[in-house]
Simulated scan of single mutants.
Amino acid sequence: MSQQHPQHDPHQPGRGGPQSPGGFPPPPKRKVGRFIGLGCAGIIGLFLLLAVAIAITGTGGGDDESGSSADPTPAASSPKGERPAAAGDPSDATKSEARTGKPKEKKVVTFKVWGTAPAGTLGPLDITYGSDSDTRKGTFANGSFEATLPLDGDAMYYNVTAQLQGSGDINCSVTVDGHTEKAHASGGYNICNAQANAGILGGWD
């Protein structure tokens, strides 16, 4: 008996999977996504390598510049045998005054008269003050008088005098370099006289 073999329809799917209309298998699919991904990764890696190379080059240059820009001049040291001046050293204050050009504070002599001194027939209270080489006139107002003069190292004395004009009670004083001399007068035409004299060995008394 002859056996009949079934005929396969080329249009029907078989064990080999779908075929093209011409009977040939379909061409394999290209993995486009994988190649695109690998291309992007390569470009990113290239940029990272360039950035690392630039950073290394810049760091090396900075080290050279910092080394070359250091000041080779050694720090100035004080001469042998001399100590640095302390912050409160008087010589520093003197040098500072010389730099700023400000003159030293000058000492002054202070003259004072205070109390009750009514004006008389000859006028108000008569006040004179000064030194052996400089005498001035003062005015008593509102129960007091005060004046100052620069201290002269050559002066032999400083004094203040105040004479009453018939009545009253007054005090007077002169202060020279921290030393004060005082006097008092009361009634009539009495005179209040305070005087500070230059000492033989310096100072005032």
Rank of each mutant, 00 (worst) to 15 (best):
A53Y: 08
D126P: 00
K106V: 14
I44G: 07
G115L: 01
D64F: 06
S69G: 10
P72L: 06
V108F: 14
T121P: 04
G45Q: 01
G115E: 07
G67V: 00
T94Y: 08
E82Y: 15
A117Y: 01
A70W: 04
A119G: 12
A51T: 01
T116P: 02
L48F: 06
A87V: 13
K106A: 15
A85N: 09
S77L: 07
A75Q: 13
V109P: 05
D89K: 05
I54F: 09
A86P: 02
I56M: 05
T128W: 00
I43A: 15
A53G: 10
L48D: 04
G123I: 01
K29S: 12
D71N: 15
I56K: 05
V52C: 03
T128L: 00
K102E: 14
A75S: 09
D89S: 15
V108K: 15
T73V: 15
F35S: 11
A76T: 10
S78K: 01
P79V: 04
E97K: 15
A53E: 05
K31T: 07
P28M: 08
S78L: 13
T57P: 00
C40T: 11
L125C: 03
L46D: 00
K102M: 08
L38N: 12
S66G: 12
I56T: 08
T59G: 11
P103V: 07
P27I: 05
V108M: 14
A51K: 00
A85F: 13
S69N: 13
L48A: 13
T110A: 08
P74H: 03
F47S: 03
L49K: 03
G39Y: 06
A53N: 03
A55P: 00
R34M: 07
I127G: 02
T100W: 03
E82K: 13
S77V: 08
F111G: 04
P27A: 14
K80C: 03
T110N: 13
S78A: 12
A55Y: 09
A119H: 02
I56A: 14
I54R: 09
R99V: 15
S131F: 02
K104W: 06
F47V: 12
G60A: 10
S91K: 15
V108Y: 12
G101V: 05
A85M: 15
S96V: 09
A119M: 03
F111S: 06
W114G: 06
P72M: 07
K80R: 11
